[in-house]
């Protein structure tokens, strides 16, 4: 169980990245929400001092998504590393209230989506339409308020399971 707990952050980011490549039947412009879901997980785990989510795992998750979506290599890897950097900056001055945490999460998603738009515009050397990105950021913020508690509950469950095993070992 300790192993599951340790790998939960990496596994969740990898699974969300994999899910972003599956055919869910969404319109092409709405599909941009899916690759933003790992951003929520990256932000959440980076803020948790006990969670193990190395930067190379984030890079690999982004690269895997680039490969699966047949897009330019390095695009999602850069976007996810940007999410990691934003989360690290936020973790230096964590918000005390729940409202503050929600606001910083929303800010992080908007910042990362803005970076993704800027990077795609640089790639094509023309300003792309920002509306699909803004819409995706909005949907991702709404989804984040559901996904973040889910990740927290899963983490607490894995934590308590791991703690139980340690007690058993100590009593032997």
């Amino acid at each position: 169980m300790k192993w599951v707990r340790a790998s939960l952050p990496v596994l969740s980011v990898a699974l969300l990245s994999l899910a972003a490549a599956l055919p869910w039947g969404l319109a092409a412009e709405d599909r941009f929400v899916l690759p933003l879901l790992p951003v929520i997980a990256i932000y959440h785990w980076t803020l948790d001092p006990d969670a193990w989510l190395p930067d190379w795992a984030i890079f690999l998750a982004g690269l895997m998504l680039d490969v699966l979506t047949q897009g330019p290599l390095g695009y999602w890897a850069l976007v996810y590393l940007c999410a990691y950097a934003v989360a690290m900056l936020v973790s230096r001055r964590p918000a005390a209230s729940a409202l503050g945490r929600m606001a910083t999460l929303a800010f992080a998603i908007v910042a990362v989506t803005g970076f993704a738009w800027l990077l795609a515009s640089l790639y094509f050397l023309q300003l792309l339409r920002w509306q699909p990105y803004a819409w995706s950021a909005l949907v991702t913020i709404i989804l984040a308020f559901a996904l973040t508690p889910f990740l927290g509950i899963t983490w607490s469950g894995a934590k308590s399971a791991a703690r139980g095993m340690r007690l058993t070992r100590g009593s032997q």
Binding site: L22, W24, T69, Q70, G71, Y75
Partner: peptide
């Protein structure tokens, strides 16, 4: 797999 996104 569906690769429909901004690039392709």
């Amino acid at each position: 797999a569906d690769s429909s996104g901004v690039f392709v």
